[in-house]
Design a protein around this nucleic acid. Structure first.
Length: 592
RNA sequence: GGCCUCGUAGUUCAAUGGAUAGAACGGCCCUCUCCUAAAGGGCAAAUACAGGUUCGAUUCCUGUCGGGGCUACCA
């Protein structure tokens, strides 16, 4: 089944072809979008104004011709407005038919993709022995939602947590492990002990440069295969993974693979040699680098930068003068592996905007090697403090993700205590967990991913307004109604044995149906642009429409066909909320 | 310096080139003998500045001012 805008666009394009004949480009497809202002109707098209020039027609006159040709259209009333808008007011009958179809469709009208991909999504990627902090929120939550959306749309998705398990931080960790670590504390609280040790060494290094040298020695030993250091390193990874899993489980986020940087160690040297042999990389100042091949205009070339009026090279260094490998080398090897072993045709990296140049270079090197695919840097803005600088606490520490989650759940718990005193302690805890975690996720997902945002405890953990609990509450309300129905006729209708007659006479019934129908267009659009906030905003609007309907249109106290129609609207609302929130990875509750 | 990016109500955020720029929080009014008031209904309040392209600009282009990022051996 086509979505409403698709259906309208098809009709309009046919009408334009009939009117303009060969003057209409053969691949033309009229753009039909949801009207921002419902007074003008549900959907609008500016096709007449777009085509006016090439067709040498007055835009209003052309639009009027379309209105005339589409006068017999059943799904919407068509009208002309302004400089040449064609407005479509969808009829109650059409919405009723769509509600019918949604009741019988598990996908609630959302079409599957026509071009399924094999897609690797790279997100979260914390470092070993360093805490997940608020900075990881964006990548982790956005990446997970994209994976959920892509799977639902019919793509084959592989999620890969590319953890930082081979960085220079290991020099400090190894030194700390050998000289500072409290073994008893390590057994009791492994992650905290490891972290405290790392922090301590980091602090001491800043005071005494000689210590930094000692750490480097430990790192070199590890990299050259020293048995003791290797075993400490492995233990660190195990401990860290164990701690991370706890956080990921609370967030209900799961990875298919955890192929960290170290996984690619053996591939780095051959990769560099191959690039040199093929003339893509060359030696410069002792390092092996990839320079521009001149395929782009200087302005669009990721390997060039303008300095004092001249274009200077900014190479991607793939081997340092001391023989060490870098981020770019690992990323190239990782990309190779994903294409070769996972048969990926698409790889999306959910990584912060500051790394834009890095990914442009990586993708451009792939172009030089003749490797093609849908490689995307799904960038996001920074999290800033109130001073608009990168977010830190007063004492300069980053805030750990764990702390944010605990605080969110704690705040939710005190509200649950106050509003639902009759719940069992166990249920209270479960509800607080779902609300607290949901609030964090929704705060992230309802924002445009490219904007920077100011971290604010009160905002992120807010439980009123445009937040997860608002949506969770709408679900609780609809479920409260559904639990009280005991009606064999309605049950039969839901199972397909009878048909529900939708009555959309009240403004709020009509508006609820309108938004329910729109789910089918919002979900694909959300994935197309990798913009979870489209779905989050839609679900918030749906919840708002439901709350409003709920206040004005009694369901259980209404009678006969009105009652059935409203019950069915409730049923669709609960299904859309369930599916939509599951795509955002936010849990719903039966009671709160 | 150059390149990228951002600048919207008091605050935090929205808005594929569309019509009277949406929300939330905060502020001020209303609504629980009624399906969960974690709700609903209403009021006041904003596109940094100056040009340009366009039938139409928060959106595209140019410049100014102001934040942030990047700019060869960290990840």
């Amino acid at each position: 089944m086509m979505t409403l805008p698709e259906q309208i666009a098809t009709r309009l394009t046919d009408a334009l072809r009939a009117e303009l004949g060969d003057a209409l480009p053969s691949d033309f497809c009229a753009a039909v979008t949801a009207s921002q202002d419902l007074r003008y109707g549900d959907y609008q098209s500016n096709a007449a104004m777009v085509l006016a020039k090439t067709a040498r027609r007055n835009p209003r006159e052309l639009a009027q011709a379309m209105v005339t040709r589409l006068a017999d259209m059943l799904e919407a009333e068509v009208s002309l407005a302004g400089p040449g808008f064609i407005n479509f007011r969808v009829t109650a009958k059409e919405y009723a038919a769509r509600m019918q179809a949604m009741l019988e469709d598990e996908r609630l009208g959302v079409p599957k993709t026509k071009s399924p991909k094999k897609l690797v999504i790279d997100f979260s990627a914390p470092n070993v022995a360093k805490p997940m902090h608020v900075g990881h929120i964006r990548s982790t939550i956005i990446g997970d939602t994209l994976a959920r959306l892509a799977r639902f749309m019919g793509h084959t998705v592989i999620t890969d947590n590319h953890i930082g398990d081979w960085g220079t931080q290991f020099g400090m960790i190894l030194w700390g492990w050998k000289n500072l670590l409290d073994q008893q504390e390590l057994e009791r609280h492994p992650i905290e002990a490891l972290l405290a040790t790392y922090k301590e060494v980091n602090k001491r290094c800043k005071e005494q440069p000689t210590l930094l040298e000692a750490c480097k020695v430990e790192l070199v030993r590890l990299q050259s295969g020293d048995a003791e250091n290797l075993s400490i390193w492995k233990r660190c990874i195990e401990l860290t993974k164990c701690g991370l899993e706890k956080i990921y489980n609370r967030l209900d986020i799961h990875f298919d693979y955890w192929l960290g940087e170290s996984f690619y160690n053996e591939a780095l040297q051959p990769l560099v040699e191959d690039l040199v042999v093929r003339g893509i990389a060359r030696e410069s100042e002792g390092a092996i680098c990839v320079f521009s091949d001149g395929a782009h205009a200087p302005k669009d070339d990721p390997f060039l930068i303008s300095k004092d009026g001249e274009w200077q090279p900014v190479p991607a260094i793939i081997r340092k003068a001391d023989g060490g490998f870098l981020y770019a080398t690992t990323d190239l090897a990782t990309l190779d592996y994903r294409i070769r072993e996972f048969q990926a045709d698409s790889i999306w990296y959910v990584v912060g905007a500051p790394q834009e140049r890095h990914f442009k270079q990586i993708f451009d090197i792939e172009r030089m090697r003749g490797v093609t695919g849908d490689f995307r840097h799904v960038a996001f803005g920074s999290i800033l403090g109130k001073d608009r600088r990168p977010f830190k606490t007063r004492d300069g520490e980053t805030v750990s993700l764990q702390d944010v989650m605990d605080e969110a759940v704690e705040r939710a718990a005190s509200v649950v205590d106050e509003k639902s005193p009759d719940m069992s302690a166990e249920e209270k805890a479960a509800v607080a967990e779902a609300i607290g975690i949901g609030a964090i996720k929704f705060a992230e997902l309802s924002q445009n991913r490219l904007s920077d945002y100011i971290f604010d405890w009160d905002k992120m953990l807010s439980l009123t307004g445009d937040t997860a609990p608002y949506l969770q509450n709408s679900y609780v309300r609809v479920r409260a109604i559904e639990r009280k129905i005991n009606d064999p006729v309605f049950a039969a209708a839901l199972s397909g044995a009878a048909r529900i007659q939708f009555i959309l006479t009240e403004e709020r019934e009509f508006h609820l149906a309108r938004l329910l129908a729109r789910f089918a267009e919002v979900v694909p659009a959300t994935l197309d642009d990798c913009r979870p906030n489209l779905l989050a905003t839609y679900l918030y609007e749906l919840a708002r429409a439901f709350h409003s309907f709920y206040e004005a249109c009694p369901v259980l106290r209404s009678e006969s066909s009105t009652r059935y129609s409203r019950l069915a609207l409730c049923e669709l609302t609960s299904r859309v909320l369930r599916l939509g929130m599951s795509l955002l990875g936010i849990r719903l509750l039966e009671r709160m």
